[in-house]
Computed example of a mutant assay.
Amino acid sequence: MSNKFLKKQKHKELNFTKKTIVLIALSVILCVTGFFLGDMKDIMRKAIFICMECIGLG
């Protein structure tokens, strides 16, 4: 393999890593925002109702 190919491959991996870090950071920020706005309670309540309906209790 040529040295030029290895440099391109390392550059692609670096871009993928940056994209991954940005997406994970954005996900964490949105989860924390939702938690402080009280959305977690609504989501949990809806999830419980859906599960109870699925097994025939709701």
Rank of each mutant, 00 (worst) to 15 (best):
M1C: 11
M1E: 14
M1F: 12
S2A: 10
N3C: 09
K4Q: 14
K4L: 15
K4T: 14
F5V: 14
F5T: 14
L6S: 13
L6P: 00
L6R: 15
K7A: 06
K7T: 08
K7M: 13
K8W: 15
Q9K: 14
Q9W: 12
K10M: 08
K10Y: 07
H11V: 04
K12R: 12
K12P: 01
K12S: 08
K12D: 06
E13K: 05
L14A: 13
L14D: 06
N15Q: 14
N15S: 06
F16H: 05
F16A: 09
F16M: 08
K18R: 09
K18M: 04
K19V: 01
K19M: 09
K19P: 00
I21D: 01
I21H: 00
V22R: 03
L23W: 04
A25D: 01
A25I: 02
A25P: 00
A25T: 13
S27R: 01
S27I: 02
V28M: 04
V28N: 00
I29T: 03
I29A: 11
L30T: 04
L30F: 08
L30H: 01
C31L: 14
C31G: 09
C31Q: 04
C31M: 10
V32D: 01
V32I: 06
T33P: 01
T33R: 03
T33S: 05
G34I: 02
F35C: 01
F35W: 07
F35A: 12
L37H: 03
L37K: 08
D39L: 14
D39I: 12
D39S: 09
D39G: 15
M40R: 05
M40L: 12
K41C: 00
K41F: 10
K41E: 13
D42E: 09
I43M: 09
I43E: 05
M44F: 12
M44T: 12
M44D: 07
R45F: 12
R45G: 02
R45N: 09
K46T: 09
A47M: 05
A47I: 03
A47F: 06
I48A: 05
I48S: 04
I48T: 07
I48N: 02
F49L: 12
F49E: 15
F49A: 10
F49D: 13
I50T: 12
I50R: 07
I50Q: 10
I50E: 13
C51E: 11
C51P: 02
M52C: 04
M52P: 00
M52Q: 14
M52G: 04
E53F: 08
E53A: 14
E53L: 07
C54I: 14
G56L: 05
G56W: 05
L57T: 12
G58V: 06
